[in-house]
Simulated scan of single mutants.
Amino acid sequence: MADEAAVVEEGGASAAQSPLVAVSFQRNVHRNKKYLEAEPKALGVTQIGLSAFQIICVGVLLAKGLGQIHTDVSFFISSLLVVIAGAVAVAAQNLHLPTLRACLGMQIVACGASLFNMICILVKMDHMPSFCWAYYYDNITLHYGDICSNIESIHSHFYAEGVLIEAALLAISVTLAVYCCKVVNCCTPAPKMTVITVQAPAVQQ
């Protein structure tokens, strides 16, 4: 009886010393799923589509003799980099860590490429020559002068649309890069989540 009383007393002492609620901090093993919150498939496909649209439009203008070969070649290369970045963003949906790191690097490159393309378009808008002034010296060709003015207006609106598209591509690249940073943890240490463990007291029989 004395031995049984001693065992019960020791068990009660250990139960009294063990906490009923334990708080610990653990790494969030599901943090890589935070990348999916950015909707990478939609944003990546948007990057590919808008960049392909820019490439086709500039290619058509260049084929018609309305482009500038020394700037359009650089524009093509930058747009292709954005297309590759969009493809990597879609591929990173498998949440494979090396692919996510590649996505982060390509999105940073895409940010620079979109900014470069925006500057190129603004430079071309600023240096766009005007040919319509020659039509207004003769009343006979006044009709052709109006047509020429409309064409120049369409040309300037086309470049303005290009600036808006590049701004959208820049915003998409920044968004995907931020979400990749949260997953890859290249700038800050991995966040820890609070885990609360509730222990039920032992039932004495």
Rank of each mutant, 00 (worst) to 15 (best):
T71I: 03
F75S: 01
I140P: 02
I69Y: 10
C111K: 05
F75M: 03
K33Y: 14
A2T: 14
V123M: 08
M118I: 09
P191W: 10
E4Q: 04
Y35N: 01
A89G: 07
A110G: 14
K64S: 06
Q107M: 04
P201Q: 09
V123S: 06
I172G: 01
C132D: 14
S153R: 08
A6C: 10
F53D: 08
L122D: 05
S149C: 14
C132K: 13
L142W: 06
Y159S: 09
F116V: 00
M1K: 01
I151P: 00
I151Q: 04
A16V: 12
F116R: 03
P40C: 10
S24T: 09
G162F: 05
M125C: 13
D3K: 15
S130N: 11
W133Y: 15
A160Y: 14
I56N: 13
S51H: 06
A160N: 15
S74N: 07
I147A: 10
I172R: 02
M1A: 10
I48T: 08
A6D: 08
L80T: 09
V90N: 00
I151M: 03
I121L: 04
V195E: 06
H127W: 08
S74Y: 05
K34P: 01
V198S: 11
M118H: 01
V82P: 03
L115Q: 01
K41D: 03
A63H: 05
P191S: 11
R101M: 11
L170S: 02
G49L: 14
Q204A: 15
L43V: 08
V183E: 01
A87N: 00
N139A: 08
S114V: 13
V203G: 11
K64E: 08
C120E: 05
E37S: 11
L164H: 10
G65N: 09
T194H: 07
N139Q: 12
A2C: 09
H70F: 09
K182E: 02
L170M: 09
A2L: 14
L169Q: 10
S114L: 09
N94V: 00
F131G: 02
D146N: 11
C181P: 03
K124A: 09
R27V: 06
G12T: 07
Q204E: 14
L164K: 11
F116A: 05
W133E: 15
H143N: 10
K124C: 04
A160R: 13
A167H: 12
Y137L: 10
F75P: 01
V123R: 07
